[in-house]
C-alpha cells in the first residue's frame, strides 16, 4: 500500500469525523427534533383512506400514490411532461437516424440469451404487478414502467438493437405509445370535468372522489377491493408512458456510430 493511499483514506475519515462533529455542535444550524407528526403529515395519514370523510379522502390505502396523483396531481402531470420533453429532445437530436440491420454481430452467447428469454416475461410481470398494486402498496406507474423498460434494456444488451427492430420495437411505435400514455393521463385528469359539463354539475380538474360542491367520483372499489378511483388509471397510463419512454431513450442512445454519423454530418438532410 502506498503512502498516498493511506493519506487519502485518513483524509476521508477525518472529513467524515469533522463534519459529524460540526453537525453535533449545531454548525449547520439547529436540527429540528420533533416527537409528534406535523399537522400536515397527520392530515394526509388520517385522510388518505378515510371513508367517513370522503370529500377530503383519496380512498387509497397507499399514501404516497394518493399524494402524488390526487392531492398534488397537477404537479406530477407536469413532471411527467418534463420527462416527455427530455425524451423528445433526445429523439430530436438523432432525428433521421435509423437502425441498420446487420451491423452488429448478433448479441451475446447462447447461455445469456436463454437466461434473458426466461427472465424477460418475469420482469414484465413484476412491472405490471408493481403498477397494479400502486394504490395499495408502495410502487406505482413510474416504478412499474421503469421495471418493464429493464426488459427492453436487457434484450438490447443481450440480443442487439437489430433484434428489437426486427420484432417491431422501433422509435415511432415507442413514441406513439409514450404519447398515448400521456394523453391517457390528461384525459383521466379532465374526465370528471367533461362529465360534469355534460350533466351540468360542478367538477374539478384532477378530481378523484366527491369533493366539496361536486358529487362526481371515480369508482373507488372493485369487488370490495379499493381501486383508488382515478389512481388506477393514472398508474396504468403512467406505466405505459414510462416503459415506452425509457425504452425509447435507451434505444436512441444505443444507436451505433455508422447509424448516426451520416445524419449528424448533415448528409442525410435534404
Amino acid at each position: 500500500m502506498k503512502v498516498t493511499d493511506l493519506v487519502v483514506a485518513a483524509s476521508i475519515v477525518a472529513l467524515a469525523l469533522l463534519l459529524s462533529y460540526a453537525m453535533f455542535l449545531g454548525g449547520i444550524g439547529p436540527v429540528p427534533v420533533r416527537s409528534e407528526l406535523r399537522t400536515l403529515a397527520l392530515n394526509y395519514i388520517l385522510l388518505t383512506y378515510n371513508p367517513a370523510k370522503i370529500i377530503y379522502s383519496a380512498l387509497a390505502p397507499e399514501g404516497v400514490t394518493a399524494i402524488v396523483w390526487d392531492y398534488r396531481g397537477l404537479d406530477t402531470y407536469f413532471e411527467t411532461a418534463v420527462m416527455f420533453l427530455a425524451i423528445i429532445s433526445v429523439v430530436a437530436l438523432t432525428h433521421g437516424c435509423k437502425v441498420r440491420i446487420g451491423l452488429g454481430k448478433g448479441g451475446m452467447s447462447l447461455i445469456v440469451k436463454t437466461t434473458t428469454r426466461i427472465l424477460m416475461p418475469l420482469i414484465v410481470l413484476a412491472g405490471v404487478s408493481i403498477t397494479m398494486h400502486g394504490w395499495l402498496t408502495p410502487g406505482g406507474g413510474f416504478q412499474g414502467g421503469a421495471t418493464i423498460a429493464v426488459a427492453t434494456v436487457l434484450a438490447l444488451v443481450t440480443y442487439s438493437i437489430d433484434t428489437l427492430a426486427k420484432h417491431g420495437i422501433r422509435k415511432k411505435i415507442l413514441l406513439a405509445m409514450r404519447s398515448t400514455g400521456l394523453i391517457g393521463i390528461a384525459l383521466t385528469a379532465v374526465a370528471l370535468l367533461i362529465i360534469g359539463l355534460a350533466v351540468g354539475v360542478n367538477a374539478y380538474i384532477f378530481q378523484n372522489q366527491e369533493r366539496m360542491g361536486s358529487p362526481l367520483a371515480f369508482p373507488a372499489y372493485f369487488s370490495g377491493t379499493p381501486t383508488g378511483g382515478s389512481l388506477l388509471f393514472y398508474n396504468l397510463f403512467e406505466a405505459f408512458a414510462v416503459s415506452a419512454g425509457l425504452s425509447l431513450a435507451i434505444i436512441v442512445t444505443s444507436l451505433r456510430e455508422e447509424e448516426v454519423k451520416e445524419t449528424l454530418r448533415g448528409e442525410g438532410v435534404e
Binding site: M108, S109, I111, V112, T115, T116, I118, L119
Partner: peptide, 10 residues
C-alpha cells in the same frame, strides 16, 4: 440463481 450464473459467464 438464474441471473448469477449468466452474469458470471458473460
Amino acid at each position: 440463481m438464474i441471473l448469477g450464473q449468466a452474469g458470471a459467464h458473460a
